[in-house]
């Protein structure tokens, strides 16, 4: 169990990676690879750096994607759909 430290000091560098902000998400981006033209506009616009470039096309990192929907809004080919996520 994590314990309270004086001054909220965290001695582990880069530990924000341990906090999976994907938990915040309500809507989840789903990419339709048939519509995707690999223009990488979604990659450039993602404010969280959660879209990875791969040979097969963009890949979303659901551990940290907060579901803001900017990728879907910006996609000129309407290849990204925001769908309700159930956990």
């Amino acid at each position: 169990m994590v314990k309270i430290t004086i001054g909220a000091i965290n001695k582990v560098p880069g530990s924000s990676k341990n906090y999976k902000t994907g938990d915040w998400r309500t809507l989840k981006p789903v990419i339709d690879m048939e519509k995707c033209k690999k223009c990488w506009i979604c990659y450039k616009f993602c404010p969280e750096g959660c879209i990875k470039k791969t040979d097969d096309g963009p890949e979303t990192d659901y551990d940290y994607c907060k579901g803001c929907g900017i990728c879907a809004y910006e996609c000129p080919f309407k290849a990204i759909e925001m769908v309700m996520e159930e956990r």
Partner: peptide
């Protein structure tokens, strides 16, 4: 006891989620 040092990176006053904030204020 603990201070900022580039050779030993640390975060002061780091994120306090609802699970910890109240206990933090208590201390």
């Amino acid at each position: 006891e603990l201070s900022l040092d580039p050779n030993k990176p640390m975060t002061f006053g780091s994120f306090g989620t609802p699970e910890f904030y109240q206990e933090f204020k208590y201390t």
